[in-house]
Design a protein around this nucleic acid. Sequence first.
DNA 1: TGCTATATTGGCCATATTGCCATATAGTCA
DNA 2: TGACTATATGGCAATATGGCCAATATAGCA
Lengths: 107, 107
Amino acid sequence: MANIAIMVCSMDKRNPFSNQAKILRALAHESRLMIVDRLSRGECSVGDLHELVGGDPSTVSKHLALLRAHGVVEDRRAGTTVYYKLLAPCVCNLFTCATQVLKERKR
Amino acid sequence: MANIAIMVCSMDKRNPFSNQAKILRALAHESRLMIVDRLSRGECSVGDLHELVGGDPSTVSKHLALLRAHGVVEDRRAGTTVYYKLLAPCVCNLFTCATQVLKERKR
DNA sequence: TGCTATATTGGCCATATTGCCATATAGTCA
DNA sequence: TGACTATATGGCAATATGGCCAATATAGCA
């Protein structure tokens, strides 16, 4: 995963589809969806999220950094523990939409 | 863009997030969103879609092939012209959701 | 059949994404 | 301060994605 240097949330006036694509891409990953789903049920520590998605802790950290860079989540430090929470709870609607598409499409 | 060999719509029972991620990824591209948006207003020829998104015709073709592989669109040939239409019109809800997230997130 | 229009496929290259390891940072506590 | 815990960052290699060009269908028509 690439390192996220800056906040990716400047709106491109030219094409709204570009911004929507960015958001969708930020969410279009199994681990990140799992993270968002979990956060939709409340604030959560990195450790918990790591336990949830597995893999290397640094990988989880980078997924979180990416979500943060897109303004989807926010972090808060309490001692050595860092907690994340959703900044845009409506992302959950995307789950519903995606599921709906999966059902609606023909096989 | 990679060539799409097979239909990508087998459901992974293990993790619903994996399937949702696939759908989101299939849509997470400016050109493909433009295409879907256009198709949401009715069937459309490849030529029209090409005129819409620009670039090389083969690139448009591959975007369409990808959407088709994910069961989002369907094609129909009439003479030398190929028409595409949405198989899952509810994908439009994703636009609303994405826009909502863009608004809701803090900057 | 040969010619044209429309669209798709194959190949290639540039770039992006992902995930691991190693290392660094931040905070707590002895 | 030093040791320890919890995260984050840098770097790298493997893989995926995107876009162009060239070549290949596929259908209509002279």
